[in-house]
Nucleic acid binder design. Sequence first.
DNA 1: AATCAAGTTCCACATTTTGGAACTGATAGA
DNA 2: TCTATCAGTTCCAAAATGTGGAACTTGATT
Lengths: 264, 264
Amino acid sequence: MDTDGETTGTGTLGKAMAVLEAVVTADGPQRFTDILARSGQPRGTLHRLLSHLVEEGLLVQRRDLSYEPGLRLLTLAYRSWSGNRFRDVAEPHLRSLHALTGETVHLGILRQAEIVYVDKVESQQTVRMSSQIGKASPAYCTGIGKAALSLLPQPELERIVSGMAFHAFTPHTHRSAETLLAEIVDIRRQGHAFDREEHEVEIRCVAAPIRVSGSDLTAGISVTGPAYRVSMEQLTAWSGAVREAAAAIGEEAAIRLGPGRGGP
Amino acid sequence: MDTDGETTGTGTLGKAMAVLEAVVTADGPQRFTDILARSGQPRGTLHRLLSHLVEEGLLVQRRDLSYEPGLRLLTLAYRSWSGNRFRDVAEPHLRSLHALTGETVHLGILRQAEIVYVDKVESQQTVRMSSQIGKASPAYCTGIGKAALSLLPQPELERIVSGMAFHAFTPHTHRSAETLLAEIVDIRRQGHAFDREEHEVEIRCVAAPIRVSGSDLTAGISVTGPAYRVSMEQLTAWSGAVREAAAAIGEEAAIRLGPGRGGP
DNA sequence: AATCAAGTTCCACATTTTGGAACTGATAGA
DNA sequence: TCTATCAGTTCCAAAATGTGGAACTTGATT
């Protein structure tokens, strides 16, 4: 009866988005009945919602009647990504950090309790191509996430943390609000955060938060590498450069994002 | 009075998407009044639509009350992209084509009169990073576009072509349905298409269409390079490999996409 | 032929959306 | 200081949309 159905207060749009999300989140094409179960909507309603989503190109219906994500999402995301001024401002800084360290550099933005990766410069030898852009990871177990959280005013931080479900991805993942909040106190003092194999084993990073004055944006950058190649000492050595890059991005963004319209 | 307002027949969802599109398409943050003009919706209605879009995370409202694309689009697109089985099947073939040619290789899917780029393997020396994925270009002036069109049954081809607005991007761009349809006859015979600097000057490509039996998907791949480095002879020399890769992707996809559920 | 499951259509009912108009509040000019 | 103007927000009766249970296809299975 209450399988999923995150029908937010947003009237019809909310229902449509919940259904869309249900299809996009699932792996593989979803048949009507699958979605019916996941969404908890009544048959008639769901049927209409699905046709509308298909008409809009947000979903595609296959020959066997099952539903898949449509291309419209990709094109919308492309346009919003390529027109994103903040990413644009940050890019050169990501590049120089990459040049300095030789490791993968990420730019992420905080949304609620998640950080969303918005740009990435990586070592060419990597297998996976572009990818990862648009990926959302929990804030409590990523360097950028913890760094970004450290910028929030305490009440908001606590509100967000209190809603977190601490899933133990690795033996080093934070398991409680207490330890996380304690670490955030340190992060505030130091100006940077580490990920000590908290999200994936054998993966470490240093991250620094980005504050853009005059904006509600909270973000961060990180340098990430495999544990066998990147020691904690190495990360510490890089932390200064990461903090400086983050600060530079923040200042530049405040200037270029603030005013308003046009751009180069 | 009738500035834009592509209010498709999809009821409320259609209106919401039209507004979203208006904001995403624009460059830079849009204020209420800007959107009011672009969308043609009445004030009250627009206001509610915008709040709903913001609540859903599809838009973000800045301090100065203007609206920007929200991160939800990126995360939705990421999930649908990374879960896309067709792209997955094609990727190794893109890689080998890249290894063979040393030039950029694209995978694109036809949607109406546009082709949407879904994956890309490029020479590392390029400036722009991942990007371009999700970008939509007109079918009539791109190699993949023309190749994909050549697979359509004649009536559908004509229906789509008749709706095209032939914009002359370069001196070599098709200017009319006649020349395009004529070229498509050749493309059908040869099994591959060229882009002879039709979309961008100094950029050429060879493309081959991908047909996936049992699916309505129409797609294509291409090898693209700058004119100074890649002669038409060179492209012709590569055309066989491109056709073979396209055929291989089509067959593999028919097998792996057909059945249904599971994963790798 | 009968049964069952999956998907689609229908339609009286009710919630949501609609959109003109009135309201607030900031900014500018007289 | 006092209007005038403009941008954004709120309101609410009327209208349109969305709702969802039930009946109806379709097509496979026994």
